[in-house]
């Protein structure tokens, strides 16, 4: 059974201010853009004007970092109202955020903190996703995060938690392939087992990104190109999930747009090989 009717968008990039003008002037070979929702939750000015103009030419997807869906703090209704207003303005194909919490007691740590994989957290997060979905009038797309710690109290694996969460909350999933790789290396789990456990019919988007080596673990820095191992894992994800909208994230050390478009062409080529292997021969 298919759990969604969201469109396949092709291959996208994160929209970054450094590239606004070039995008508008050269119409690069990018099928769609993902925007960081919070960057456009401002009263007016150039960021929103640029966003409006780019929305005229490209499908957009909203990707948030502060929904804090797993927090035990109350849902921030002011934040949700701004999210809904932005969605009304740019009509994104979908809205995503992370399976994480960003703070409690009125503080925002501006980090994507992992959730303990417990029944309590499962009930808590699935209930909040359902409430947010009701408020926004659309289904949320939830992304797995990179993590550097796991909790003593976790009862199940991350992938079983994600799969069960999607089922209970009836939400959709954004599979961040780089995050699977980073967390797998950091916590010594089998990244392919993760991918094999995620329900195929819930995944509407892939993220690809680069990471860095920290002192004792990999860090999800989004500051360099996608590495070979993540490309390989992407190929495996394509074999399982088939045609899924894919985008490359770059948030630091941002290169010229042409470099990112070329990296996106690598994703296209890998997808073509994975999804249409016979065409390679003919």
């Amino acid at each position: 059974m298919t759990h969604h009717t969201l469109p396949y968008l092709g291959f996208g990039l994160g929209l970054r201010p450094q590239h606004y003008r070039e995008i508008l002037e050269t119409a690069p070979h990018v099928d769609w853009f993902e925007v960081i929702s919070e960057n456009y939750m401002v009263p007016g000015g150039q960021p929103l004007r640029m966003l409006d103009r780019i929305a005229e030419s490209y499908p957009l997807v909203m990707h948030g970092v502060s929904l804090s869906i797993a927090s035990t703090a109350d849902l921030d209704m002011d934040y949700l109202a701004q999210l809904k207003e932005l969605a009304r303005r740019i009509e994104p194909r979908w809205i995503s955020d992370h399976l994480c919490w960003t703070g409690v007691h009125g503080v925002n740590l501006h980090d994507l903190l992992p959730v303990p994989y417990t029944e309590e957290a499962l009930a808590h997060v699935s209930d909040r996703i359902a409430r947010v979905q009701d408020y926004l009038g659309r289904r949320l797309v939830i992304e797995n995060v990179s993590s550097y710690i796991t909790y003593e109290c976790s009862e199940i694996s991350e992938w079983d938690f994600v799969a069960e969460l999607a089922r209970r909350a009836d939400c959709l999933l954004l599979l961040d392939v780089n995050n699977v790789f980073v967390s797998g290396m950091n916590h010594d789990f089998d990244q392919r087992a993760f991918i094999e456990s995620i329900p195929v019919d819930r995944v509407v988007q892939f993220h690809l990104a680069g990471h860095s080596e920290g002192e004792t673990c990999l860090i999800d820095t989004h500051d360099q190109p996608v590495c070979e191992e993540v490309w390989t894992l992407y190929g495996k994800a394509l074999e399982r999930f088939g045609t899924v909208s894919t985008m490359i994230e770059r948030d630091d050390n941002i290169p010229p747009l042409a470099e990112l478009v070329a990296e996106l062409d690598t994703a296209r080529a890998i997808a073509a090989l994975a999804l249409h292997p016979l065409e390679r021969v003919s």
């Binding site: 710690i149 909790y151 003593e152 950091n186 004792t216 673990c217």
Partner: peptide
């Protein structure tokens, strides 16, 4: 003591990633 032992590095070193990043 909330953190499970990590395969590489101590619990403190893993927590340090979040402490420094903040």
């Amino acid at each position: 003591d909330l953190i499970a032992p990590a395969p590489h590095g101590s619990r403190a070193s893993r927590l340090d990633v979040y402490r420094r990043a903040y």
